[in-house]
Structures are given as structure tokens and as C-alpha cells.
Design a protein around this nucleic acid. Sequence first.
DNA 1: AATATAGGTCTCAATTAGAGACCATTGTCG
DNA 2: CGACAATGGTCTCTAATTGAGACCTATATT
Lengths: 129, 129
Amino acid sequence: MPVVTETRVDFWQAHGINPDNCPVRQVLDHVSAKWPVLILMVLGGGPRRFNELLRALPDISKRMLTQSLRNLERDGIVRREVFDTKPPSVSYSLTELGQGFLPRVLALADWAETSMPRILAARDAYDRG
Amino acid sequence: MPVVTETRVDFWQAHGINPDNCPVRQVLDHVSAKWPVLILMVLGGGPRRFNELLRALPDISKRMLTQSLRNLERDGIVRREVFDTKPPSVSYSLTELGQGFLPRVLALADWAETSMPRILAARDAYDRG
DNA sequence: AATATAGGTCTCAATTAGAGACCATTGTCG
DNA sequence: CGACAATGGTCTCTAATTGAGACCTATATT
């Protein structure tokens, strides 16, 4: 039996936090889903309207965009404002909470970017082996 | 037409990087999939065997564990070693690359943990409104 | 002989994501 | 006037992904 260091996951378990009631996992779940991350990166450039987001993320569907935005809004990460123009326009932007989250996401993207050569090399080796 | 700041996503687009060949997005996919993040957090505590991981993540299926580990291994984030015991045992651990990746992932988890009260409050308000 | 452990694979059902039609209102163009 | 575009979505149907769990080979234990 190997000696193991306690991880955060062990801690969660020890405290009866299961996947269904673990708040961190719930946040991570939609914060770390495919689209929310990309949406936040776009909103990092300033407020965007619905269709602007659609154009910025060429391969997202309206359905997923709506859904992801609703989730982010519900968690207070994104703010949704409707302007009474004709036709009405809707603006999405990062809340203060969202602005605190973004740097962590960007840190990940930076890491991915600088580590890319090593990752590609690893893939190459794996696929050949 | 609103004046918008260029985001990294805009930059990708301007350089013809589409979702299918964008390396950063491919890496981010590990983060934004459900299991890899949790697996990395467990491996942060030291090497683990296949069934140890299975026990550490009570709600993952063997199928998804295998699949996630293969992806991480392919990208050089996780190392897989087979020991010729009877029956053979397999050890998974973070590579150097994986150790560089983990802190960024933990930063996300930390943020989620400390922001939880605000997020729960936002949810509550959203669901009532 | 039966059962357990190791580390998986395979199949099938359930869940989730994606493609795209559709909607109401207003503005523009010919 | 009639057609067409843009606004921000919803709805349906299909395709892809995930999850549950049976099954597998080999050795060790009871």
C-alpha cells in the first residue's frame, strides 16, 4: 500500500462532499466547459452583443451560446443588459466576478501556448509509438 | 458598430486558426472536459495506480478514466508506467509538463472555492428573479 | 472450487451537443 | 408595395458523447 499525500479531492471525500453536492465542482463544471471558457475570453475584450459573440465563435450554435450565457449569468460571471432599440439589442459583459476569473483562464491559455511545442512533440512520439 | 478591443480569439481568427487546428483550444479541451481536471488534482498528490484513481473519483467510469488518461498521456502531461508484477500494475504520474500545468488548474479551483459565496448568492438572486 | 485483484475493453442505453428551421418586429432597397 | 436583412432568441431532430456495467486474462487466496 503506497503512502499517498492527501489531495484536495481526498479532502472533499473525507468531508462527505460527493460530486452531486460539491460546489466547486459545480462551478468548475460549467466554467470549465468548452464554450464558457471561449466566451469569457471574447468578453475579456469588452462587452459584446449576442450576434457579435456568434460571429466571434464561428463554430458555436445559437443554442449553445444561449445556454452557456444563461449559466454564466446565473452564476454572476456575466451581465446581460437589454437595450430598448429597434430591434432590441442585448449586451453581454463580464461582471466584477467574471473579471476576477478571466486571468486564471488566460493563464491557462498562456501555458497552453508556450507549452505547445512540447505537447506537439509528445503527441507525435505517442502516435508513432 | 461598437469599437472593440482585439481579443486572443480575434487574433486566432485573423491568422486563419480555426477551431479544428487551434492548438490552444485543443489543450484547453483537457481543462474543459469533465474528468481531466479532477484526475490531475489527484495525481498532484503523487503517483496513483489505475484502481486508486478509480477509487479516488467515485463517480468516474473505467471507460472515461481510461480515455482521459490516454489523452493526457498523449499530450505528455501524464506518464504511464507498467510494472511487471503479478498481476501487472500500472502507475500514473504527472510529467514535468503536467507539473507545470497543475498550478494553473489549481488556481481555477482556488478561485471557485473562494468565490463560491458570491456565486451562490448570484444564483439565488437569479432563480428568485 | 470459488472469489478477489489487477487493468482494461466492449456494448448498449441515456444524456448532451449541434444543425438549422422558425418567429416577431422594424429598417432598407428597388 | 414586396422582398430581404438584422435583431435575439426558441424548438425540433439528429448526431455524438458519456455512463453503467458485463466481460476478459492471469495469478493469488481461502
